[in-house]
């Protein structure tokens, strides 16, 4: 018995050491604990959401500023970036306002979603459950929507997957829109497996599009937040993003049945319901943003921000390295000048 206890004690120490060393090593790879990457140029100056012609994003460069909201000039996206003080996992700006979705510290996954003013100061914030995944504002910056992955549910059922999607305005918060009545193919649909994600709100601030998954199929839904009713339009559409003119939707379409990252970004014309695959052939797992009516931007693993024409022509080009969660709330209209695809495309 004594020998057995000694063996156990030694084993516990050894296993604890293995775990500890591994954790330590993984911690060392935490970008926030790494020295700042000198190849990423930073210029002094505040991130102000009302500055025109700026691309706002989440700074992913290793170093103490990792995870903070940053911006670059849209005319020179690979030029120096300005880094703000606000830290978010997902950020979106429109009309000079911001939306910050950030992990909240604690043993159970939870997050905070907050409106910010142009100077990145949090205004109205709400605590929500889950791990940050998507965040978006309506074009006028008044309606916020977000999606988190909820993992606590796995206590209840082995291996379940669930999303939680909320919508917030200045005076109203709904942290879970899953109970919204849903019509699939014109018929009322009730199921316990309904999941909403990736909301994009139209110019009237009440109509929105989103993904709904139920019964093993994803759908594009059009919903009315005031009438509290949603209706499916089309299958195999995820993470829709409405164009500034409201006529098209960019979305990720599942093109492979198995394997990781099985998506191809498409644009759907809402008037003709014709969809066009974009020139980006790599799998885009993002709710893309429209920089203007002709260009969309998105995050690719790296992470890096890339852009591609919205009509299926041209080629993808790199905008910003070490960056994710792009948006350009004050892009200054259709005349905004993006760099031509020349030497800037390094990949």
């Amino acid at each position: 018995m004594k020998t057995k206890l000694s063996i156990t004690a030694i084993a516990v120490v050894l296993l604890a050491a293995v775990a500890f060393v591994y954790i330590k090593q993984a911690k060392a790879n935490d970008p926030r604990d790494m020295p700042a990457d000198v190849s990423v140029a930073v210029e002094p100056g505040p991130v102000t959401l009302t500055d025109p012609g700026r691309l706002v994003f989440r700074n992913e460069a290793p170093g103490p500023d990792h995870g903070k909201v940053a911006s670059v000039s849209l005319a020179d996206p690979q030029g120096p970036r300005r880094v703000g003080q606000l830290r978010c996992d997902r950020f979106y700006t429109a009309a000079g306002r911001g939306l910050c979705l950030a992990d909240a510290p604690g043993p159970l996954p939870s997050a905070t979603v907050a409106f910010t003013d142009a100077g990145l100061v949090s205004q109205k914030s709400v605590d929500i459950a889950g791990i940050p995944n998507r965040a978006k504002l309506s074009a006028d910056g008044t309606v916020a929507s977000w999606t988190t992955f909820v993992t606590g549910d796995s206590y209840a059922r082995t291996g379940t997957f669930s999303t939680r999607t909320g919508i917030m305005t200045a005076d109203e918060v709904d942290t879970n829109i899953e109970d919204m009545p849903l019509r699939v193919g014109g018929r009322q649909h009730r199921a316990d497996d309904v999941n909403f994600w990736g909301v994009t709100v139209a110019a009237d601030d009440r109509t929105f599009y989103a993904t709904v998954a139920t019964g093993g199929q994803t759908h594009l839904v059009k919903a009315d937040q005031q009438a509290w009713q949603a209706e499916t339009l089309r299958e195999n559409v995820e993470c829709p993003s409405l164009s500034p003119d409201g006529t098209r939707i960019a979305f990720k379409k599942r093109v492979a049945q198995d394997g990781a990252r099985p998506w191809r970004e498409h644009v759907l014309d809402l008037r003709t319901m014709v969809e066009t695959p974009l020139a980006e052939t790599r799998s885009v797992d993002d709710q893309v943003v429209w920089l203007d009516d002709r260009t969309i931007a998105y995050t690719l693993p790296g992470p890096e921000i890339w852009a591609v024409p919205a009509d299926g022509s041209g080629a993808a080009r790199l905008l910003v390295r070490h960056a994710s969660s792009p948006s350009a709330g004050y892009a200054s209209g259709p005349s905004s000048q993006l760099p031509t695809p020349s030497g800037s495309s390094s990949k």
């Binding site: 291996g159 997957f161 093993g216």
Partner: peptide, 23 residues
Amino acid sequence: TAILPLYLVLGLGFSPLQFGILD
């Protein structure tokens, strides 16, 4: 069990529906 759905969907980029089938 607690983190597997997260790992598959967020870590590896599987579609949530694929994961349901796998499971």
